[in-house]
Simulated scan of single mutants.
Amino acid sequence: MTTGEHFSPRPLDRSAKFYVAGHRGLVGSAVWRKLEMEGFTDLVGRGSAELDLMNREAVFDFFAETRPRYAVLAAAKVGGILANSTYPVDFLSDNLRIQVNVLDAAREHEVERLLFLGSSCIYPKFAEQPIKEESLLTGHLEGTNDAYAIAKIAGIMQVQAVRRQYGLPWISAMPTNLYGPGDNFSPEGSHVLPALIRRYDEAARSGAKTVANWGTGSPRREFLHVDDMASACLHLMENYDGPSQVNVGTGTDVTIKELAAIVADAVGYDGEITWDTTKPDGTPQKLLDVSRLAQSGWTAKIALEEGIRGTLNWFRTNSDHVRS
């Protein structure tokens, strides 16, 4: 495809070279699995030891050498409330460099279809619920992860700018809270769901009588299994073309207290659950309006209870690695 040529969404060529940036991470590995299942035969991925995406020259050399036709940018520095609050410079600087390097190199080598993955934290803290795509840049961000959010907003803007200036049909997708096999279960860097899984699993194993969780338990959160996310990524690349980012989620949410109860039940923990209200809650509610995605023909399929049980099984099977 030449720059500026009219594009109509269509099935991707299963034999074309397809680069997944961040293919060993939670989302990237799920995308890789989905593409393999769908018959893509020329997938390209590089671990951080092979290709430092913050090294601009190395990224450009990689694109010049491999010349992928399609790409998903799932590489990012990610973390939960504690990590985002403690290391805002890292979350801003590292993610900006990763994005600018990959997007600039992909544009120079005219990658035909590129999907940029962001996060629902791009939306204002008090955005009207459920959050529509149009809420972007209409209010103040949540202070605990504003640095990460600004980096992701910059990525959306760069994709839109490439569309306007170069005519490449690139798109952006904004997933809700993701979980599943390959998640980060570390005590310092994990998000709420893997943190709860680890905490309750350890409590059940040790026979602890009490488990203390952060905050009040009242915030509402939406959770999407990464295998559903990967399915949505391919669907969007084959069925959507537009400048706006597309929300990806289930359209339903639960309170953190409800989530903790589901995890405790899956783990088999029957002790007392307490809440440390001196710790931050974060955004009171973060539910995405997924009507645009639904109108394109895609809805989530993996129920939360089913997904949590599968993730717990993965965590227990791989505990030697994730507990290091």
Rank of each mutant, 00 (worst) to 15 (best):
R10V: 08
R14A: 06
A16Y: 10
F18Y: 12
H23S: 00
L26V: 00
V27R: 00
W32V: 01
E36G: 10
M37K: 02
F40K: 05
R46G: 04
A58T: 04
V59W: 07
D61G: 14
F62T: 04
A64Q: 14
V72I: 11
V72K: 09
A75G: 03
V78S: 08
A83H: 11
D90V: 05
L92K: 00
Q99S: 14
V102G: 07
L103V: 11
A106T: 11
A106P: 02
H109C: 01
E110S: 14
V111F: 10
F116N: 13
G118T: 08
K132R: 12
E134T: 15
L136E: 01
H140V: 02
H140Y: 05
H140L: 02
E142W: 02
A149N: 00
K152G: 01
I153R: 11
V159K: 02
V159E: 09
R163T: 05
R164A: 13
R164D: 13
L168I: 12
P169G: 01
D183R: 03
P187W: 02
S190T: 06
V192W: 15
L193P: 07
Y200W: 06
A204V: 01
A204Y: 01
A204L: 06
W214P: 06
S218E: 08
H225R: 12
D227H: 04
D228Q: 12
G242F: 07
V246G: 03
G249Y: 12
I256N: 08
E258S: 08
D265N: 05
V267C: 04
V267T: 07
G268Y: 03
G271E: 08
I273Y: 03
D276A: 11
P280F: 15
G282H: 07
G282T: 14
K286Q: 08
L287G: 03
L287R: 14
L293V: 02
A294W: 06
G297E: 07
W298V: 08
K301M: 06
A303I: 00
A303N: 12
L304C: 11
L304E: 00
L304D: 07
E305F: 13
I308W: 13
G310N: 12
T311V: 12
N313W: 04
H321I: 14
H321M: 15
